[in-house]
């Protein structure tokens, strides 16, 4: 059965790593729902987070192939219950929309969104949350009119105490 999995990959910060990782996923004709990369809490070690919808067998094999790459320390996969995760979305709406009653204001309050910038022509709203939440706000804003929408890749922290540290200790690294 397909499920949403988040793969976290700890690697060296080298040019080729990301394309190796992505290649492992795309060669199986799997579309990535989201991808993000940044440094991790361990100095000098990079973290890549990828979200895909696959079966558990598939995600296990994909992680094994990612692990195998020379510059990768370790890849782990999690289902959503193992994670605290967020995405950030930005919405550009016409300033006019704020003049027409208090619809937009109510939406901002209801969704706990933030107003980032006010210009003559447009206002930029920010909302952090899970995809369903940012998606719901989008749908409502579409009713009043929207110029632009963008959502970031998922950032995630795992609930179990980081397996990587244990792993690195076992390997006598860091």
């Amino acid at each position: 059965m397909e499920n949403e999995y988040t793969i976290t990959i700890f690697s060296e910060n080298k040019t080729g790593v990301l394309s190796r990782v992505i290649g492992i996923i795309t060669r199986r004709k799997i579309n990535m729902d989201s991808i993000s990369a940044s440094k991790s809490a361990i100095k000098g070690i990079h973290k890549i987070i990828i979200v895909i919808k696959v079966t558990e067998t598939q995600v296990r094999k994909i992680c094994a192939q990612i692990d195998k790459q020379i510059d990768v320390f370790k890849a782990f996969y999690y289902d959503n219950s193992d994670l605290v995760y967020q995405e950030i979305a930005l919405y550009k709406v016409p300033t006019e929309a704020f003049y027409q009653g208090d619809t937009v204001e109510n939406l901002v309050r209801k969704y706990d969104a933030k107003i980032l910038r006010i210009e003559k022509k447009y206002i930029v709203i920010e909302k952090t949350g899970h995809q369903e939440e940012t998606e719901a706000l989008l749908e409502e804003l579409e009713q009043v009119g929207i110029y632009e929408f963008i959502r970031s890749g998922r950032v995630a922290i795992v609930k179990p105490m980081e397996r990587l540290n244990t792993y690195l200790k076992k390997r006598n690294i860091a």
Partner: peptide, 13 residues
């Protein structure tokens, strides 16, 4: 490097 990523164990420029 781009072309040989999936057919090498490791590559580097």
């Amino acid at each position: 490097i781009g072309c040989t990523t999936s057919i090498t164990k490791w590559n580097y420029q």
